[in-house]
């Protein structure tokens, strides 16, 4: 029934709702998406959407402009502003809710998936001492580093609202492009502009084997 609901939402142009499709259902969803995307002239961005997103970006990116009227933004406003992004999944909401009730400087602890598998993210030779390197494997995005010969890794997702962090290699910091939060490469919070400090980044289990660096990631 869930595939039918997905298809119905698709055909009505509504936001689709999550479920847990099996292989056959996933194939039906793919067929439905391909068929719907094939409708003539349906992929273009609407002018209204383009204008609306331009306004959202302007509030976020032009805030240093002295001429612009910059509203003082409370955390609530931020939440509203990024609401549709946060609403992309229940999991994101769950993380946010947990963050609110957890002391900010306490990391979530190591991220250890049930049934984790060691997944290669870089060659050992690609990570010299002092080096930091981003990776994105099935299920986990993060950064590995080598300090004093030891390899370590942290999650690459901001603990505030789930944006992907970027490496600022010279500063040895991970910066969140959404709200200017930054973390040290070891995951501790360096700076933020949020009402409540976000948690430190979860660490990941990492090892070196067969000339490669591997993290414990969810099974593919």
């Amino acid at each position: 029934m869930s595939v039918r609901r997905f298809v119905e939402d698709l055909l009505r142009g509504r936001r689709t709702r999550g479920f847990r499709p099996d292989d056959e259902e996933a194939a039906q969803m793919r067929a439905a998406i391909e068929l719907r995307a094939g409708r003539a002239g349906s992929g273009a961005a609407s002018e209204e959407f383009v204008a609306d997103l331009r306004r959202r970006l302007a509030t976020d990116l032009d805030e240093d402009d002295a001429d612009a009227v910059v509203p003082i933004r409370s955390g609530r406003r931020r939440v509203l502003q990024f609401g549709s992004v946060a609403a992309a999944g229940l999991a994101v909401g769950a993380v946010a809710a947990r963050a609110a009730s957890t002391p900010a400087d306490v990391a979530e602890g190591p991220l250890v998936p049930n049934d984790g598998t060691w997944t290669r993210v870089a060659a050992s030779t690609d990570l010299p001492d002092g080096g930091v390197r981003g990776f994105d494997v099935d299920g986990v995005t993060g950064f590995v580093r080598r300090d004093g010969g030891q390899v370590a890794a942290v999650s690459g997702i901001c603990t505030h609202q789930g944006c992907a962090l970027r490496l600022d290699a010279p500063a040895r910091e991970l910066r969140c492009p959404c709200h200017r939060t930054s973390f040290a490469v070891n995951g501790t919070l360096v700076s933020h502009q949020l009402p409540t400090p976000p948690r430190a980044l979860p660490t990941l289990s990492v090892r070196e084997a067969d000339g490669g660096i591997e993290v414990l990631a969810p099974p593919p």
Binding site: D9, L10, G13, R14, R15, T16, A32, I33, E34, L35, R36, A37, S42, G43, A45, S46, F49, L53, R56, S84, V85, A87, A88
Partner: peptide, 15 residues
């Protein structure tokens, strides 16, 4: 849009 097949999701993801 080609990947999700509906405007609402395509707009959210583009944003």
């Amino acid at each position: 849009f080609a990947k999700v097949g509906n405007r609402a999701d395509a707009e959210d993801l583009t944003a």
